[in-house]
Design a protein around this nucleic acid. Structure first.
Lengths: 347, 347
DNA sequence: CTGAAAGCGCTAACAG
DNA sequence: CTGTTAGCGCTTTCAG
């Protein structure tokens, strides 16, 4: 691997000049520029990114924290993040926390600021204190899927109005005529899907409909499957299932299939997110779509801004504007009606 | 961010000593070691990975090239890769080629050897010449899913006997009594699934069964869907579909659903790979499982070995053992019978 | 057992 | 416009 120095020698200039032509910095004469470019091509020179990172004091990578990339939502998101990151020359390092805050911390400790100049956090079971620590150490962090635009998390974030998503789902079911609706909340009671469920309840309330049964479940197909069976077991008159995420909704459809209930004939099912699988299931899942690609784009660009300004204010003492934690809000979720919802069966 | 130097000062020693205790190198006195450790803890020191990379001449990351992380097989594989990589302190950078060889080359050019010390390649539409180039430049490359153990690709790889997988699938269908089987090959005629289809044909041949119809398709659910409809259109007497991958197999099931054909009652469907979705579809997909996690582990450890030896032989002139390109073979694929296959309908 | 010194490959002022 | 001079933070001989 040829170095900058060798290229410089080959071109009969100094390393600084080569560096300059390569990054269009200091103005360089056209003839030397050509000479340098030729040398670069001749030697097949490629800049050593680690060296550059050290010299610049910043690494060209972003860390993407996910609980498990195997959860089908994350790959879609990761793809969008990577695309956005590439536009600013960033590479993305994927950090699976495997739902373990300690693993998450280990990642943050190791790469934040030393190999990555910014951190993107999805709903990855992380300790907020750890995130604040890495922020305090100078590495910007942004939360990618904050659920409650009206209750900022105290960390830069891009928020999606998930309460609205829940409400839209509820309204859709209500409009179809459903009154006995089971709800599957894909997390513990205190969990991250509270806003979605709240929206659903709001819709019910506004329509004067009864509140219905709720079941908390793992945010997986299996979780939705189990929850649905429990729900239907407890109340066979349920005509629709609202799940706070697509995966459990898919599980609900499976449960229906196993119980011999047709969807949507005998049971309607709706989810939230609109992952690819939602389109591809049979029947195709009605859901409330979250603008995934947009969120990824917003998150990356917010992170970039934070990174830039973090270098900018390096000299400033005690920035008191730390109170204004930035938050971007994505465009609102939208109902996508597909084949898993319909009018309720007659009693 | 405290530096090694500051820690050294704090502990009243030199940076070299701190470095030594941190990596258990030069023997260090127990008392100074303690002192250093305290200083490290007190200052919250974390090594600067980019600086270390430069000094060591090697980066702590591996590049994982995939065509699109959104294809459901890759996340599962990526997760396994990351787990394996962590055991040697490596981070993984995910590189989506988006099926574009140029994008792949751009990635290789930029990070191979400068930010990543090794490259893992899945079936990511890459130019082999580019891979050889990066290898020649000194960055080891390993192919992760080579399909034909008996025709080494000329690059280090871990191979899976996909011909066998196709054969097992064929045998299963045959054993059930199917004779009119449609095949969906998830790639162009010249493509990467040739071995799988060959195995299937071998099984047919061995049983003296007719060869049946074939349709090439995109390696997606949609591709399988379209292909299935075409197949059934051309020959309604088909009783089973063999797909060279799970995604198209899933698509076949959807097509069946839309045509009002019950699976497996009126149409059996089998795939290859056993992605998570196969377990989670309804009916659950019968498939031939590839040992994904094992393959990831083999690939990472092979890559590690290549990396180590590449540093080792740095001085040696013209290593003539370049002829022995290493290949690891995974344990054989295994048939997983689930609910999508059964005896053929009576004529 | 520990310190001093050189350098990894590149960038960033500042001179000339 | 181009060259000089310092490092970035860490590792690694080699002396002491």
């Amino acid at each position: 691997m040829p170095t900058l120095n060798e290229v410089a020698r080959h071109a009969g200039v100094t390393p600084a000049t080569v560096s300059n032509v390569l990054r269009n910095r200091g103005r360089v004469g056209e003839t030397t520029r050509q000479r340098v470019l030729e040398a670069v091509a001749a030697l097949g020179y490629r800049p050593h990114l680690a060296a550059r990172a050290l010299a610049e004091g910043r690494a060209p990578t972003l860390a993407l924290m996910v609980s498990s990339i195997a959860n089908p939502f994350y790959p879609e998101f990761a793809l969008a993040v990577e695309r956005a990151a590439r536009t600013s020359g960033h590479f993305v390092i994927i950090c699976n926390t495997n739902e373990d805050p300690l693993t998450g911390r280990a990642y943050l400790d190791q790469i934040a600021g030393t190999l990555s100049e910014g951190v993107l956090v999805t709903n990855a079971n992380l300790d907020f204190a750890d995130l604040h620590t890495t922020e305090a150490r100078g590495t910007p962090v942004v939360l990618c899927m904050w659920e409650r635009p009206h209750e900022p998390p105290g960390l830069p974030c891009v928020a999606v109005d998930f309460r609205l998503a829940g409400e839209l789902a509820g309204q859709h079911l209500l409009a179809l005529g459903h009154r006995r609706i089971g709800a599957i909340v894909g997390s513990k009671a205190t969990g991250v899907h509270a806003a979605r469920y709240q929206g659903f309840v709001d819709a019910l309330h506004a329509a004067g409909a009864p509140k219905g049964r709720v079941k908390h479940a793992l945010d997986t197909i299996q979780g939705g499957y189990t929850a649905t069976r429990a729900l239907l077991d407890a109340d066979p008159t349920i005509t629709a299932i609202f799940a706070t995420n697509d995966l459990p909704a898919l599980g609900a459809m499976h449960a229906a299939a196993d119980l011999g209930l047709s969807v949507p004939g005998e049971l309607s099912v709706i989810g939230i997110t609109d992952i690819q699988l939602a389109r591809e299931s049979r029947p195709a899942l009605t859901t409330v779509a979250v603008p995934t690609v947009e969120v990824a784009g917003l998150a990356v660009s917010l992170l970039r801004e934070l990174i830039e300004s973090s270098y900018g204010q390096a000299g400033k003492a005690a920035a008191p504007d730390a109170v204004t934690v930035p938050m971007r809000i994505s465009s609102p979720p939208e109902l996508v009606v597909r084949a898993s919802t319909g009018v309720p069966r007659s009693p």
